[in-house]
Amino acid sequence: MTTTWDPALYLDFDDLRARPFRDLVARIRAEDPRRVVDLGCGPGNMTATLAARWPEAIIDAIDSSAEMVAAARANGVPAERRAVEDWTPAPDTDVVVTNAVLQWVPTHRELIPRWLAALPPGATFAFQVPGNGAAPSHALTRALAAQRGVTVRGEPDVAAPAEYAELMSAPDLAAEVDVWETTYLQRLTGEDPVLHWLGSTTLRPVRDALSAEDYADFTAELAPQLRAAYPPSADGTTWFPFRRIFGVARLPR
């Protein structure tokens, strides 16, 4: 089943979700790339920062979601709809950025070394994926979805940082590899803020699998569980741990 996305809901947390993207791109040392690819560009809000950093480069924006591609184009980004699994780098692709995408691609462990091997000398491949699979937010979601016969993909398919380091450090690639993880504490506010946060990403496949009535029942049952797992502080703030795994591989020239 193809997951449908709501660009407006996703952008409700634009600044918070952009933090890992900015931290990832800050580790890329490319100075004058010919072509920069945003693989899984979403609504294109962060693609513009790549164009601003490398104004002379050709910027390719690719996403598998029709809704996200339409939103990116509305934002002036000439995005192309294509499955990540079907993408192959052009000969002049010097930078690839894939942000919070690979967790949705079960074969990404096979794709990463294949993409690296197809990139030209000196190219950089940079990715970021969520690492919250074991967190209460996601464990509760998976358990409740399973009761309704729905399997939640995504973060359970993410590897440990050491495995990504091994994938990108194959002897035949001779890449310079940097892998790290960061846990951000996201300040969420409002009514059922964790449910609202999950609704823009993790819950999308559940929403697609259930009828509107069943999804309303699902969220009504999930909401109090999330409130108990993430109680607000005295001022109404909910501090939500947001663990991310990063990897940057730079091929030798």
Rank of each mutant, 00 (worst) to 15 (best):
P161N: 09
L251H: 06
A216G: 00
N75G: 15
N45K: 00
Y215R: 05
L173P: 03
P121Y: 13
P120C: 07
P20V: 09
Y184M: 05
L50M: 06
W5K: 05
T124I: 09
Q186D: 07
W54C: 01
R243T: 12
V158N: 10
L210F: 11
W104E: 12
L198H: 00
A126G: 12
V152L: 06
R204G: 07
R244W: 10
R253M: 14
S64C: 13
R253C: 01
P252D: 06
D235F: 00
R204W: 05
W5D: 04
V37C: 03
A220L: 00
L226Q: 04
L39W: 04
L111Y: 01
A134W: 13
I112T: 01
P232F: 01
T2Q: 14
T93W: 09
E191W: 09
W104T: 02
P120D: 09
T238D: 02
P241W: 08
T182N: 06
A117L: 12
D86H: 00
L140P: 03
D217T: 13
D15N: 11
S137P: 10
L185F: 00
F240C: 08
D94W: 13
E163L: 08
A234L: 10
G133M: 02
L102Y: 03
L111F: 04
P78F: 08
H108L: 02
T2V: 15
A170K: 02
A223K: 06
C41V: 07
P241Y: 14
D32K: 11
L24C: 08
G154Q: 13
A52H: 15
D60Q: 01
T189A: 02
V150K: 00
A72M: 10
T93E: 08
V37L: 06
